[in-house]
Amino acid sequence: MLQRAYAGLIAAAVISAFLASCSATPKTGIAHGEELFQNCKPCHGEAGHGNLELRTPAIAGLPDWYIIEQVTKFKGDLRGANPDDMEGHRMRPLARTLYHPGDIENVAAYVSKMPSQWMPPTFTKGDTAAGSVTFNGVCITCHMADGKGNKDLHSPPIAQQSDWYLVAQLNKFHRGWRGYSPEDVYGGQMRAMALTLADSTAMHNVIAYVKTLPH
């Protein structure tokens, strides 16, 4: 008798679980984006503020259009496919996991709504006066005087970003590890701008200035 009762209970539990899974409505929009963000957390952190040890940038609060553009580039090998781009190699396959229509838009919508945080400087070197000259002569055209970027020019906000990440990206653009594809029009533009920086010192100077912008 007791055995039959146990068997009945187990059968009821299995059937209930099956019916519950059938009736679960797939999430959409930002709620779906929040689900997808679980795959971003291991590298970009719970709050999306990045991780220096993993060389992952702060993404919380970035504009959704910029996130969509970049994830699409990773997915299409326009970014992260250079054999030397170690960090890009990590991001590229994860971008490929966003294969359902709307996945990229949903996760971008969620990330763009996350609270942004100004990342404090980590470099001790960098001449802000010299960097100011470069910034106001070159970068300002697209990234604007406040470093908040310009959607019409497809330039992202940089004022809040970690300085180590910005210098690393300048290096990548300079070396052709980013902005290498003729199909990546805006990346190509940025590569041309990065090539105006003569050396590593010039990169540190301009990023040191960026970190002085109001936030």
Binding site: D84, D85, T122, T124, K125, W164, A168, N171, M203
Partner: peptide
């Protein structure tokens, strides 16, 4: 072509912060 065009700065691409 890529080799000839390489004019990268001396820093490593990952740009370790000086204070780390």
């Amino acid at each position: 072509t890529a080799d000839a065009g390489a004019s990268a700065p001396t820093d490593s691409t990952t740009a370790q912060p000086a204070s780390q």
